[in-house]
Simulated scan of single mutants.
Amino acid sequence: MTDRPNARLCIFMNDSAEEAVRFYADTIPNTHVDLVQPIGEGQNLVLFRILDTHFMAMDGNKSFEARPDHSIAVATVDQEETDRLWATLSENGSEGPCGWLCDRYGVHWQITPTAMTLMLSDPDREAAGRVQDAMMKMRKIDIATLEAAFHGEA
């Protein structure tokens, strides 16, 4: 008997699943390509993990469009990592509000510093509200600006 398979988010792409996943593996810490399986001429199924979360990318279904309400959220440890992931993933893609972006392959991401999450969930709801207001004016998240808002300095 085999172990129960895990659940995976499936991302449909037109024709660049392997290229995209290898780009993610080069960009995001602890990202691994587990399997590249040809499924047709010029089409692949790619199993991969980002920070121990399982995903599957597939080529060949042009009828599905990527949607911003389906995104991969990556928690970053500091501003340097936030800046690096933002710059790399948004290159030849598009930037959105509040830490959201769309990469060159049409995959939507949220690049969210853990410091922001902690401030937004702080028991001091006034301070958290100031952070929320500051975040709503940003594209890429700036931790120092959020910290200033949290402390009422902005």
Rank of each mutant, 00 (worst) to 15 (best):
I141N: 00
M119D: 02
D78K: 07
T117S: 14
T145Y: 00
H70V: 14
V74F: 08
G96Y: 09
L146M: 05
N92Y: 13
D133L: 04
D26C: 02
G96E: 10
L45Y: 09
E126T: 03
L146H: 02
F55I: 10
D103P: 04
R67T: 14
V107W: 10
L118H: 12
D142L: 03
Y24A: 07
A75F: 04
S71V: 05
E91Y: 14
L89E: 03
V33P: 00
H32E: 14
C98H: 06
W109H: 03
E65D: 10
A128N: 04
W109S: 01
T114V: 11
D26S: 15
K137V: 00
M58F: 01
E80D: 11
A87Y: 08
G42I: 03
D124N: 08
H70Y: 10
T117F: 10
W100L: 08
L35Y: 08
D52T: 11
E41N: 12
W100Q: 09
A144Y: 06
V107N: 13
T88E: 13
P29R: 12
E65M: 11
D83Q: 03
K62A: 13
N44F: 06
D69V: 05
H32Y: 02
Q132V: 00
A148L: 02
P38L: 06
S71K: 05
Q43E: 15
M135A: 13
G42Q: 07
T53N: 15
N92S: 11
A87D: 15
D103E: 06
Y105Q: 07
H108I: 00
G99V: 07
G129I: 02
Y105I: 07
M138P: 01
P97W: 10
E80P: 00
F48R: 06
N44Q: 08
W100Y: 13
G106W: 09
D83C: 01
R84Y: 04
A25T: 12
T145W: 00
G93L: 08
V33L: 01
W109F: 12
D59E: 04
T82C: 11
S94Y: 06
A87L: 08
P97S: 11
